[in-house]
């Protein structure tokens, strides 16, 4: 079965004061209809830029796709005319953002902003139909007293409510794909859980695919069926959710998982971290980009970028030494 969305060898760069900087480097993944794919990585690893590239929302003129392709139902999104892209954007592929506080226009009523989505993709709907469907959407995303909310301004809603409104706007035309760029990061934990549950329910009811971008592995575990781990603009590892947590292959993924505090850890001990920090965009190592923080790094890792191996169906890993790393693991387990 052909994937709904294929990202193929995508490379994205930005013009900066010091010249052109590669932010996303040969990133490939597929998204099947109806699945939830997690895109995980530290701040600045290129996960948001990947999402904006899919939406065609890269900041212009600084950012541009200079390699690879994005295929949505066999249409190349970077190459189609702007009109066609506008018909897909917000209609077939919708996106919600990190900051619900600023993502809504402060001087327009919620109902107006919601109705706008209908007018863009289904012009000619009667006012009554738009109101009826807007109310339906607000109910669907769990907003109480929707009639009243339609007449309110964004500042009259709480953060969680605003994110629900954003989700309602994204759902307006029943998209095939919803890209959620850290939608719960700005919300407090109880609201976070509610929004995640809402997204899961919506996916079950509508059958849309979700690309869920986060730096929070806990959120990934709750929501996603497959995960793409990114590091410094490249894919480190790609795996179904279960194997990723039980048998991570890439040293970076292992480091991330080891950094999650556990309830059965000795209290008041130092938390495990990955030593060092993400290299800046100007000082990327020439070989593997994780080399300066990797406990398994050898000579080869410095000079040569790793090729992507596919050790099992649905699994990919970009590491020279994943076999040795995991053999050591197996030894440790057997002794």
């Amino acid at each position: 079965m052909a994937a709904l969305l294929r990202v193929e060898e995508l490379s994205v760069g930005f013009d900066t004061e010091d010249g052109f900087a590669d932010v996303v480097d040969h990133v490939s993944f597929d998204l099947e209809a109806g699945e939830t794919l997690g895109l995980v990585g530290e701040s600045g690893c290129g996960k948001s830029v990947t999402a904006l590239s899919i939406m065609g929302l890269l900041p212009k003129p600084a950012g541009r796709i200079h390699g690879g392709d994005i295929l949505f139902k066999d249409e190349s999104l970077p190459r189609i005319p702007p009109d066609r892209m506008r018909a897909i954007r917000g209609n077939r592929i919708a996106m919600i953002f990190q900051e619900p506080m600023t993502a809504l226009n402060p001087v327009q009523r919620v109902g107006h902003q919601l109705a706008e989505t209908f007018s863009l993709h289904e012009p000619g709907l009667s006012t009554e139909t738009v109101t009826r469907r807007s109310l339906g959407l607000l109910e669907q995303v769990g907003i109480p007293a929707p009639e009243q909310r339609l007449l309110e301004y964004p500042h009259q809603l709480s953060g969680g409510m605003r994110q629900r409104v954003m989700i309602a706007m994204a759902l307006a035309s029943g998209p095939d794909i919803l890209i959620a760029d850290e939608p719960t990061t700005a919300l407090d934990v109880t609201i976070q859980a509610q929004i995640l549950e809402l997204l899961r329910d919506l996916q079950r009811d509508t059958g849309m695919a979700i690309i869920f971008i986060t730096h929070d592995l806990g959120v990934i575990a709750e929501l996603c069926s497959r995960v793409v781990v990114m590091y410094a603009g490249r894919i480190a590892e790609q795996a179904p959710i279960g194997p990723l947590f039980t048998h991570p292959l890439h040293p970076y993924t292992r480091g991330l998982l080891a950094s999650i505090p556990r309830l059965d850890d000795e209290p008041k001990t130092l938390l495990t971290t990955i030593p060092g920090s993400v290299p800046g965009i100007e000082e990327l190592p020439s070989g593997c980009r994780f080399v300066n923080r990797c406990p398994f790094a050898v000579e080869r890792c410095h000079g040569q970028a790793p090729v992507i191996d596919a050790p099992a169906p649905g699994r990919k890993v970009a590491c020279h030494r994943w076999r040795e790393v995991n053999a050591g693991d197996a030894e440790a387990r057997s002794t």
């Binding site: 919708a94 993502a103 989505t117």
Partner: peptide, 14 residues
């Protein structure tokens, strides 16, 4: 540069 303009464009607005 505000995010709500990005939201509007993400809705499919020109």
């Amino acid at each position: 540069a505000a995010e709500y303009v990005r939201t509007a464009i993400a809705k499919g607005m020109n």
